[in-house]
Design a protein around this nucleic acid. Structure first.
Lengths: 333, 333
DNA sequence: TCCCAGGATGTTTACGTACACACAGACGAT
DNA sequence: ATCGTCTGTGTGTACGTAAACATCCTGGGA
C-alpha cells in the first residue's frame, strides 16, 4: 500500500505537506504542490479512508433506510437521493427492511455521518435517543409528528382532501377506500384529509367500503375483489398509495371489471408505472426529486453543524388526472 | 465518545482484554468476559469502525453497482443481495448509474472490501486493473467473457433458444424482436440463442422485424408501435427483458391492439410486475435469490482468500408461459 | 518440592492521516 | 538595524483498535 509518507519521500517533502496538498486548503507553494501531485500520480497514491476518518471523524458516507425497495416508489426516491449524495461527494449505505436499528448502530460505530429514514413508522427509543443526542438524522417522505428532528415530507392531508374534492365534484357517492398500514404518517395523513373533506362535503366515508389495502399489491388486489363482489360496490376507490392502486386495478381486471367504466381508481405518489398505458392511473404527485435534494442538503448541513434547529419542510402535492377516472363520464348509480 | 480504554478502566482490566472480548476468539476467563460485557453495557460502548478497519484492513462493507435502480429487476436483485449481506453481517454501499468507476475508487481507498457489479458492459482498463490486482470483484447477472474473475450469471443463450422453440412450436412465422443494448452480455446472449435456434428451425429472424428496444419502457413502447404499424406486423414479439416487454405491451395497448389476440409478447427476467393481471406476460425466469446468494458468498470467500481461482456459476433459466401468449390460440395469419 | 506447560492477562506498538505547534525565511514598518 | 508579521514547511503526536510479545499465575507431573 502506498501511503502519504511514500509520496512525501518521493517528492522530497514532509508527510504533512502531502496531507496539505490533499486537503487543498492549507498553504502550499505552487511548485511544491505540483511536485507532490506528480509524486502522487507516479506512486499511484490513494488516501486511506479509514485513517482519514480516524482523524477527522468524517466518513463522507450517509446511510439511507428504506422499508421495501421492491415498492417502485422507493427506487425513484433512492435514485434522486443517490444523485444528490453523489453530487456532494458522499457515498450511500443502504438498509432495506422495516427495521432501521442496523442503521442506528452504524451511526454509533461511526460508519456513517448521518441517516436518512424514508419509512419510519414510530419513534422507537433507539431513534429517540439518537435524535436527542443530536445525531444527524433526517426523515424523508414519512415523518413523525412527535419527534423533534429534520423532516421532509409532502402535505398528505391536502392530497387526501384534493381526492375527496375531486370524487365528490364528479358525482360519486359510493366511494371506497383501500387504506394503508396504520402507522406510516403518509397513510394516516392521506386518510385523515380524505375522510375529513368527505365529511365536510356531506358524504362521510362509509366504513363498509373501507378495506385494508396495506402497501402491497397482493393485499390490495384481494381487498379490491372483495369490495367489487359486494351487492352494492363502490363506484370509485381511493388507494393509500400507487402500489395499492395497481393492486386495485389488477383486482378489478381479474374479475373482468373495467377501469374506469365499472369503477374509478385513484392512487398516490405518481410512480412511473401509473402513467403507463396498461394502468394509466389518476394519482397525487409528490415532487420526489426536490424532496430528495432537500433531505440531502439538510442532512449535510446538520452534519456540519449539529446545533441547527430542527426544520420541517412540507412540499405541496398535486392531483394528476389520468384515464383511470376522468376520461370516461362517471357511470350513474 | 466511549472507547475500549474507558470500558477497560470500568471493568478493571486492560484495553487489550476488552478487545479480546470484542473479537470473541481470544482466551478470556468467563467471569472476566462477563465483567467486561457488563462494563460495555454500562458505558454504552460501541467499537469505532474506522479504528478497527485501520488495524484489520477490513470494513465489513461491500459495494454494489447497479446501472438503473428504477428498472424493477434490480430492486428485486438488490433485495436478495441485501438480505444475503445482512445475514453475513456486511453493510452494503450502493452505486446507481452506468459508471462503476466510483466504486472502484472506493475499493482503492479501502472503503469497501469488495464489489458486486450487476450491470457491467465492458472491461474498462480500471476494472481490468482491479481484477488483475486480485481485488475481490464478482460480476452478477451480466458477465464479461473476456474477464477472468468470478461471475454469477444465467444461461441466457438457452433462454433465448427456449423462446425460439416455443414460438415456432406454436406456429408463429412472423416473429418480431425488440433487442436490448449492444453491450450487456444478457442482451447479447439472449439474442444469440434466439437467432441461432430460429435459424436452426428454418425460420431465421427477419431483420425488418427486429427493432432496438433498449432496456427502457418508453423506447420499447415506441419501437412496438412502429412494428405494429407496418403493413404486415409480427404475430409475436420477443423482448430483450421484462421492462422492454412491458413497454411493448403498452405500445400495443396504446394502438388499441390486444395481447395476445393481436400479438403475443414475451419478456425475460420474471420481474414481479409481469405476473400482475394487467400485464400477465410470458417470460423467462431467472433464479434471482439463488444468484444473489451465490454472488455474495463467492465474494466473501474471495475477500477471505484472494488467491482462489476465478469461478463462473451459470444458473439455468425457465420459460414461464402466461396470458400474453398461450392462453389464447395463436391467430392464423 | 520443584519446575514447566499452558492459559489468562498486560504492555508496547503500529496502522495512515491530520491537527497543534514550532520554526525558518522574506519583507515591511518603525 | 530591529522587530513583528506572514507564508511555507517540518516535527511530534493522537485518533481507537488489534497484533506481537511479555508476563503472571495456576496446576499437574516428576
Amino acid at each position: 500500500m502506498v501511503t502519504s509518507r511514500d509520496v512525501a519521500r518521493l517528492a522530497g517533502v514532509s508527510q504533512m505537506t502531502v496531507s496539505r496538498v490533499l486537503q487543498d486548503n492549507g498553504k502550499v507553494a505552487p511548485q511544491t504542490r505540483e511536485r507532490v501531485l506528480a509524486a502522487m500520480r507516479e506512486a499511484g497514491y490513494r488516501p486511506h479512508a479509514a485513517a482519514r476518518t480516524m482523524r477527522t471523524r468524517r466518513t463522507a458516507t450517509v446511510g439511507v433506510v428504506v422499508a421495501d425497495i421492491t415498492n417502485p416508489f422507493y427506487p425513484q426516491l433512492l435514485e434522486a437521493v443517490a444523485e444528490a449524495l453523489d453530487a456532494a461527494g458522499q457515498r450511500m449505505v443502504l438498509w432495506n427492511g422495516p427495521d432501521g436499528s442496523g442503521a442506528l448502530e452504524s451511526l454509533d460505530e461511526g460508519t456513517v455521518d448521518g441517516l436518512i429514514f424514508t419509512t419510519v413508522t414510530e419513534a422507537t427509543p433507539q431513534l429517540g435517543d439518537a435524535v436527542a443526542r443530536a445525531e444527524p438524522i433526517v426523515l424523508l417522505h414519512r415523518g413523525l409528528d412527535e419527534l423533534d428532528c429534520d423532516q421532509v415530507t409532502t402535505d398528505n392531508v391536502a392530497g387526501g382532501r384534493a381526492v375527496a374534492d375531486y370524487l365528490v365534484a364528479t358525482g360519486h357517492t359510493r366511494i371506497g377506500f383501500l387504506r394503508g398500514p396504520e402507522l406510516p404518517s403518509t397513510a394516516r395523513h392521506r386518510e385523515h384529509g380524505f375522510r375529513e373533506r368527505l365529511a365536510e362535503l356531506g358524504h362521510p366515508l362509509s366504513e363498509d367500503l373501507s378495506a385494508p389495502g396495506g402497501f402491497a399489491h397482493d393485499v390490495a388486489r384481494s381487498a379490491m375483489r372483495d369490495l367489487l363482489d359486494r351487492a352494492d360496490p363502490p363506484t370509485a376507490v381511493f388507494c393509500a398509495n400507487d402500489l395499492t392502486a395497481l393492486g386495485a386495478v389488477d383486482g378489478a381486471v381479474s374479475l373482468g371489471r373495467r377501469v374506469p367504466e365499472d369503477v374509478w381508481v385513484i392512487g398516490y405518489d405518481d410512480i412511473a408505472l401509473t402513467a403507463w398505458d396498461s394502468y394509466d392511473i389518476t394519482t397525487v404527485r409528490q415532487p420526489i426529486a426536490e424532496m430528495a435534494r432537500a433531505a440531502v442538503s439538510r442532512l449535510l448541513e446538520r452534519i456540519g453543524d449539529r446545533d441547527l434547529p430542527a426544520r420541517r419542510d412540507c412540499f405541496p402535492s398535486e392531483l394528476l388526472v389520468r384515464g383511470s377516472t376522468a376520461r370516461t363520464p362517471h357511470p350513474a348509480h
